[in-house]
Nucleic acid binder design. Structure first.
Lengths: 142, 142
DNA sequence: CCCAGTGGGGAGAAATTTATCCCCCATTAA
DNA sequence: TTAATGGGGGATAAATTTCTCCCCACTGGG
């Protein structure tokens, strides 16, 4: 575990939430779990731009923060399934709102972000797969 | 402007939103603006743990991303006011939801985060001021 | 024995974000 | 002229996060 040298601001809800969601793949992981992509190997496939290592690390942090839990099946082939805790479920509306807002404003945001940042179009893998699943999800909700 | 070497994943709403909100003080800045803390010097006072420099930088990024705008008053003493664009306003429900969720679960989250991270209690300044203002805000909404 | 699939994680480098220091410009008052 | 206020930003160091490479254990099939 990395030893932080600068204390985190945790006295307002905003910072607490920011800390819980702080990680390049954490929102995507939570979304994936809510879409029933619950096994590590499935996530590695779905979030193909993230390495196995990073996913493991962020999964562990989410677990430590009480957002997700894991079920370990003692069997062959070894099998693990993550799930949202009640706390995690209560966070999903936030994730969904982020997802929705980003989707709704994609056409405005992408060029602005691209202009402000050097962005190379993802090399084909990206999260297209993930994206299509999101749509299924939204459709299911609606 | 920093030249990114690894392309950002921007093809799903979640990542777009994450990128827009990516910055230690961005959510706090947006919340501050919605609380009518709109002048740079006011923000420096309210978010006392953030340096003037970082605030300026994140303000500029939010501006570049179309979330906020600024009005410059040509007068003495020189005066600048930031405001939420329509896009920014549409993002506020997400910020408010993050704020609310964190507030509601503070008692659960703080110990878990603290156990997972070396956290020194803020030295007195912190965002207490900011926090109390948030409460006023919530009260005003309710 | 070696390979494949499933779940994990150490070590160190590289990338990115924050923090620190210190200076700039403009205007006005003393 | 010299402060003082208000808004900005360069340069560089330090902190933090992410990436890459590689290894561990288990079990079943060539």
């Amino acid at each position: 575990m990395y030893e932080r040298k600068i204390p985190l601001p945790l006295d307002c809800g905003l910072h607490l939430t920011r800390e819980v969601l702080n990680g390049k793949w954490k929102p995507a992981i939570l979304n994936a779990i809510s879409l029933d992509i619950v096994r590590p190997s499935e996530m590695v496939r779905a979030l193909s731009d993230a390495s196995k290592r990073v996913l493991n690390t962020q999964l562990r942090e989410l677990e430590n923060h009480g957002i997700i839990g894991k079920t370990i099946y003692q069997q062959y082939p070894s099998k693990v399934e993550y799930f949202l805790t009640d706390l995690g479920k209560s966070l999903m509306p936030v994730i969904d709102a982020m997802n929705y807002w980003g989707d709704q404003n994609r056409s405005i945001l992408k060029p602005l972000i691209a202009a402000d940042t050097i962005v190379a179009e993802p090399s084909g893998s990206g999260c297209q797969t993930y994206q299509s699943m999101v749509k299924v999800h939204n459709a299911a909700i609606a």
